[in-house]
Design a protein around this nucleic acid. Structure first.
Lengths: 345, 345
DNA sequence: GTGAAAGCGCTAACAG
DNA sequence: CTGTTAGCGCTTTCAC
């Protein structure tokens, strides 16, 4: 990949080595129309011999970069790994590479900077996971760069959407707990003060769905929300708050597994047993739920299907599709040992 | 950031808008030497007014990309998040952006592709976290792109190294367990069949250190290794294997927290208590260790310091430093409730 | 089917 | 201190 004089091998080196024009090499590289088999073989041989790889930045000046940018709020949630892995797998076949940038968690300014960084690097497409900026901003970006938004509930004619049916997911959990006999079911949610409309955020959908199902079962009076965050600390703090109420809940539904782990810690610390005294459920079905000391009831939302679909949609966009599509996965409940009937009395 | 006709705003637009040359704009952008204050103000006004952002790919053709590439084996380990966050924080002040690519975990081919992707995108510097390719390959890459390697124990005059003193870390754990009275202490390690020399890998260093300390205390006969992987599944499988031995260990030291969580699950499933029947210790001091149902004894290796240092070293390299440096953090033991004296008898 | 040449947006000499 | 100009490596007309 370097010439005798230490320079990087360029398309010109390949061309002169194969005794053809740079145009011909370029065409072979891109499988473009109009190259004879003989030419293809000759050029490919030169490419292999010199170990040539196209210079992505130079490509970016004219055509594609063969790069898909992924915006993640952070890389702490293993659930994101499922999404990214499936995406990478899906696009690699077409010669695409995924690059990841971290947005600022819940800070819209930092998120915007991260997205701009991708746009400035001329990614051919972008997957934005649970972004918090406004729909208007996303559309502005989507007009310039093919975009898939994952995990938001607002609709747009500009970008594609991939999401989990959080309404159903939350419903599954609450119905499950009610079915076990629980009435005092609490919920831990996340409240960000972000530009995006609350109804567009998955945490809002989960919380509203929780409230709705409670009300439908005549349990509106037992609605108890702890508004912290989808993190271990958030789950821990929220639980301490909920346990201090009188009477305390017999079940806690955390909006995310990470928060549920914090719930387990707080419940345990309070000298209470799971599920003997308190049932606990999470959301995401991350690997640790199965592994946890007390295996955790959770909602599976098939991150692999979401990531794979996002990849496919982006490739389609690069291919030229301009209409927006919306893909929703239906979650399923995975009941484990952390939920059981409430204690008698 | 787009002109009336939908084109992206370029340096030429800014120049004509401010009635100056593109050179002047370029100099202002880069804080280069030789611009009057008046010029700076005028150009900056035009930049702000037009919402101009430099085109990273175009920059890459001539000078810097202001991009640092980070290679991660995968994004499942939250410990990596500490490193990346600290790195991003450190370099953002200098106007740098971090982009992350996933190597193939333990697959050297995929890892090499991921690294090449960064090089092809002209990153100004690269942080390779726990790479598994050979030192020779790393040096080849390091000659072309400023490189910091994190978590490897081999030395190189070409790239910088940032690492945890895994020898000390493992020693702390084993001494701690021996101090509590344990003799049958088992260790769960990871064995990859990778191009890198085993001695260069942190898991080997931890395992060798475990064996050494055991031997030093006359416990060579009690050395028990389960060779699986640093993952929940690896910890789980390794533990089932260890518990089947006769007599079974009274303590299990997992080489990574993720594996330790699998240990907890397997121990629990076997109807044994932690730490009543079996003490468990991990490595990494990830946040969940404090939160876990049974809070986990672990080794803290200050990922933030490592990430921050990696960022600083990379900026120094970009600035022109060519000599290689090596930075090692000294780990500390964080004893929690998962370790206690062995059961009597 | 093939190649010559223009040009993407920027930076780095170099002149003025 | 400021501007003119060449050219980075590639893709894309457009001749041949």
């Amino acid at each position: 990949m370097v010439t005798r004089d230490g320079r990087r091998v360029t398309i010109t080196d390949v061309a002169s080595h194969a005794q053809v024009s740079t145009t011909a090499v370029s065409k072979v590289l891109r499988n473009a129309y109009g190259v004879s088999e003989a030419m293809r073989v000759k050029v490919q041989a030169a490419i292999d011999e010199l170990g040539y790889r196209p210079h992505a930045a130079a490509r970016a000046m004219r055509g594609r970069t063969f790069t898909i940018g992924v915006l993640l709020p952070h890389i702490r949630n293993p659930f994101f790994a499922d999404i990214v892995e499936a995406l990478a797998e899906q696009i690699s076949g077409a010669g695409y590479q995924a690059i990841i940038v971290q947005g600022g968690g819940t800070d819209p300014k930092a998120e915007r900077r991260a997205i701009d960084a991708l746009v400035d690097r001329q990614v051919d497409g972008m997957l934005a996971v649970a972004p918090v900026i406004t729909r208007k901003e996303l559309e502005e970006i989507g007009r310039g760069t093919p975009t898939v938004v994952l995990g938001r509930h607002d609709r747009s004619p500009v970008y594609d959407s991939v999401l989990d049916d959080d309404e159903v997911g939350a419903e599954l959990v609450v119905e499950h707990l009610i079915g076990l006999g629980h009435r005092r079911i609490a919920h831990i949610t996340q409240n960000d003060n972000v530009p995006a409309r609350p109804a567009a955020l998955l945490q809002t959908v989960r919380a509203r769905s929780y409230e709705r199902v409670m009300a439908e079962h005549g349990l509106a009076g037992h609605i108890a929300l702890a508004v912290t965050s989808y993190s271990e600390e958030g789950g821990y703090e929220g639980t301490r708050e909920l346990l201090a109420r009188e009477p305390r809940p017999t079940a806690i539904f955390a909006g995310a597994d990470q928060a549920a782990f914090g719930v387990l810690a707080a419940v345990n610390e309070a000298g209470l047993a799971v599920p003997g005294d308190i049932s606990v459920a999470g959301y995401d079905n991350s690997r640790l739920t199965a592994m946890a000391h007390v295996s955790l009831t959770s909602v599976d939302q098939d991150g692999a299907a979401m990531g794979q679909t996002a990849g496919r949609l982006l490739l389609e966009r690069v291919q030229g599709r301009t209409s927006a599509v919306r893909f929703s996965v239906t979650p399923t409940l995975v009941a484990r040992r952390s939920t059981a009937p409430p204690p008698a009395g």
